[in-house]
Design a protein around this nucleic acid. Structure first.
Lengths: 351, 351
DNA sequence: ATAATTATTGGAAGCACTTCCAATAAAGTA
DNA sequence: TACTTTATTGGAAGTGCTTCCAATAATTAT
């Protein structure tokens, strides 16, 4: 139906082998025939058939990405990095979005994307991996790289949540606060755990006590407690404390939660930073709009790097597993009171 | 290397034709052989090779989506609709993101996605189409469906921008405002044009004059003026008017611009709705957080429907072109002053 | 029981490529 | 000039599937 290398071969008076060779820039074809073939191919407006190529080469030139939709802004930025990088390499992206943390859908996506001849490799994003994950997929024929999640046995690109939380808390400390609370998401989430660790470490290492009463974690399952609602109820709980026991500053484990916390404060006629200083986490688009001091993550870069890691893995299947961790950075805006000279850069701190 | 239908055929003592027939649920194969083959396939953990199938069937079972990244939340929601629908149909999504409105990248994406054997069809999102688009792609072998953009010659799913703008303006009118301004994006954008038309129509049809001085459009090219900055400068310009000529309410052509406008007001110590009422457009996530009254679009539904349209087109290539338009709806929050009884539903209005 | 249908089945051909091998042509060497 | 060596070249085989056609087996009708 459409033009194939056979058409080109006939028209140019050569064999299909030769056509294939010039189209793939193989050596050992005389310049005259090469030019002739190229001209015919161009005249006929030839386009290779992707699937036929894939079949013959046993290579799809596409990589699959499984991403939870709710990661939202993170998702978008990382994806952009991935795509910009991947285009330069001639690969395509097969997208598998995940609604909520639906294990069944995850399974089906994973199965599909690791199916023979569909993609060369799979990237998993921000996923809490099932217990049997490693055992099940370790020996699958597809490279798997983890982005923003971790497992010892797979290549991963992560961001150091502990360091980020440490930086956020340290910032509050350096601003002179001594009663620093934390509003955390649901501790079943690994990032939530790590952010808590960073918070606690910053307190201890700077001679401040860790006070149970100033720490509120969420039991909400939806989005693992990384939601506006979760932030709201945690803050309400926090404000239940007697006036003089309240924290003067709070590190909130995500910007959306911070949004909720802020509106709880508003409902109590409290303002940030005047009444309570707030640091968020994530630097979502919103944060900029409302002047939220927060922790930013190099999402675009992570995307770019993760493609690089995937390609490495594709060309060297037996290389040893690597783990790369990015350091997030503090972004100072208005919700803590802006005191430039006292800003702390996380890069000075090694966890 | 991996298990093929030949392995199954051998093991089950039948021919490959038979294997293929049972795997594809073709009739005319005895139940005993069918069961035998199925068992062997299961025991061998057989997976069909996607590319080989595609090649033989001349069908990829994937559809390509070209989406500008900056559409952000819209992008995400529509995509979710698409994917939920498409999964039930056994298709995959190939994603081509667009950075800004880069015509060159658009061209290359389109070329790639319409390449033989890569995808069965292409969906284009929120794109200002180049002039030579129709001429160039009308007779390409791939179905193309347009989402949130329009061209006479291609199937499209859009949302009625004029109706949305009308509803927004009408809401302001019904609240008693008489000096209603509009802050628009760059008029080169079709949605910007239509939103302007809706604004103007609402004014005229309700006996209010259209006043040039109360209308500010943007000349900014980035994001076609749908940006926070654009909103900010437009509002500043608006506030340059003498006190008594200022509008008492403003319809802003997008929520991000509204964010900018709101912060310009804040810089002038003005508040919404007390000093000036504001309606936005888009209902981005942010809008909910800041209580912005705005116009919401059924993004998820659009995604679902667009897949449906694509499938129709795939099964009937010569059917006539269809255009579907969704009616957006007014979402009343706080930036106009909340007066429930006077809320106007756009569904009562036919453009 | 025999002929005529109808239901299964095997396997070749085709899908559009790549790659390898043998064959031919060109160039180099003595 | 005759013999190697090297550079091109054509085309068969292979990639893993579907589908069509002819052949065989099972049913039904006579």
């Amino acid at each position: 139906m459409s033009v194939t290398i056979y058409d080109i071969a006939k028209q140019a008076g050569v064999g299909v082998g030769t056509v294939s060779r010039v189209l793939n820039n193989h050596p050992n074809v005389s310049v005259k025939t090469r030019e002739r073939v190229l001209k015919v191919a161009h005249d006929l407006n030839y386009q290779p058939h992707a699937f036929a190529q894939g079949l013959a080469r046993n290579k799809t030139n596409t990589i699959a990405a499984i991403i939870p939709f709710f990661t939202n802004y993170f998702f978008l930025e990382v994806l952009q990095g991935i795509q910009d990088k991947i285009l330069t390499l001639g690969y395509d992206i097969m997208l598998y979005g995940l609604n909520e943390n639906d294990p069944e859908q995850f399974e089906s996506h994973l199965l599909r994307s690791t199916q023979k001849g569909r993609a060369d490799g799979v990237m998993l994003f921000s996923l809490r991996l099932p217990d049997d994950f490693a055992e099940k997929y370790k020996h699958v024929n597809h490279p798997i790289v983890l982005v923003d999640c971790f497992h010892q046995d797979f290549d991963s690109i992560t961001v150091d949540n502990k360091a980020g939380a440490y930086a956020a808390t340290k910032h509050l400390i350096s601003l002179g606060h001594e009663r620093i609370g934390m509003i955390n998401a649901n501790p079943i989430s690994p990032p939530a755990q790590h952010r808590f660790e960073g918070y606690k470490a910053a307190l201890i290492e700077n001679g401040l006590p860790f006070d149970e009463k100033l720490y509120k974690s969420s039991k909400i399952m939806k989005y693992d407690g990384f939601s506006r609602e979760a932030g709201y109820v945690s803050m309400i709980a926090m404000l239940d404390l007697p006036m003089d026991e309240r924290p003067t500053a709070i590190f909130v484990s995500s910007d959306v939660q911070a949004m909720g916390a802020l509106s709880a404060m508003r409902d109590h006629n409290l303002k940030a930073p005047d009444d309570i200083a707030i640091v968020g986490y994530d630097d979502i688009e919103l944060a900029q709009h409302i002047g939220l001091t927060t922790i930013g993550q190099p999402m675009y870069e992570m995307g770019v790097l993760s493609v690089g890691r995937m390609l490495d893995r594709l060309t060297n299947r037996n290389g040893s597993v690597t783990h790369t961790s990015f350091t997030p950075k503090l972004i100072i805006r208005e919700t803590c009171g802006y005191r430039k000279t006292e800003a702390v850069s996380v890069t000075n701190h090694q966890v």
